[in-house]
Design a binder for these strands. Sequence first.
DNA 1: ATTGGAATGTCAACAAGACTGACTTAAACT
DNA 2: AGTTTAAGTCAGTCTTGTTGACATTCCAAT
Lengths: 166, 166
Amino acid sequence: MMSDAPGGETLLFLTDEQLRQGIEAMFFAYRGFTADPDRILAGLAYGRAHHRAIHFINRAPGTTVNNLLILLGVTKQSLNRVLRTLVEDGLVQSKVGKSDKRERHLFLTEAGEALERKLSDAQRARMRAAYRAAGPQAVAGFRQVLESMMDNDLRRRYQALKDSST
Amino acid sequence: MMSDAPGGETLLFLTDEQLRQGIEAMFFAYRGFTADPDRILAGLAYGRAHHRAIHFINRAPGTTVNNLLILLGVTKQSLNRVLRTLVEDGLVQSKVGKSDKRERHLFLTEAGEALERKLSDAQRARMRAAYRAAGPQAVAGFRQVLESMMDNDLRRRYQALKDSST
DNA sequence: ATTGGAATGTCAACAAGACTGACTTAAACT
DNA sequence: AGTTTAAGTCAGTCTTGTTGACATTCCAAT
């Protein structure tokens, strides 16, 4: 059971029921979050995995395969299959590294950028509507809770991405 | 481009870059959100799909198969496979409806409740830590944005679940 | 200079979890 | 009696993930 006011502040927002509602909100919201890009991808021969790869290559152009698979949290074999189709279809270009020729640096082609724009436009539209409905203060809280929910190493990578685009 | 202060309030939180950061936060946070239960389930012969079924049967005991598959957003064939193993393993009980004998009402057995507790304890622990770190105001904002992000019909179902447990 | 380790890629096999389509059974509604 | 609804089943497919084994290339350290 939860006792209240150990620091002069009520902790009612930490009850099991409140946490359970947060868990369900997270589950349902994530469905909405992926729904629009999924609809677009269903038409093409791609899935969510392709979307994620395209997103992060766009976000960090020239990233290595190794960096990408850590960001995505998948094995290199799994990522490789996705990457191969994207390269074959001319959406992604893979360039051998200059200083270290073992590494491959990944870039979107123009066609890749076009698809990225289409997908993220759809996703941002929903995000924008939600942000607008909730207001700036709610958005700040939203971001704060999400960041606290991440694993430590992913939070660091997330921060690095944020900082790189300032 | 985004102009500001149409209602006396700056809209800087609605820039594409802010939205993009929100999208990435959502992606990374969801990984953390599922990480702990996934670790537990990996040991047993179950996956995320079993977790979701168990969660909602616990949340709405006596729910019908039809209701459950709408909540989960999967086909009956997909749900059926999961449900069958849970019934076989004695975690879920399926009772023929009284007023309508076509319906099956689903309940957790004691073993099912035990696993549910184990899984949701782990998930709530992370949620609680995140909530505590962010504070009650941030949590309110978090919930608000998530609700705005849901599809309309799912938001209604989410609200119904919330109200049913007051 | 050779050896060891790291980064990448490839092949093969496999499993979870989703999908569609077709079909059955039983019950309920009209 | 005929239609619709709820649930379950069978078969086949797809995406996305997993291991394990192995080749290549290159860097770095002994």
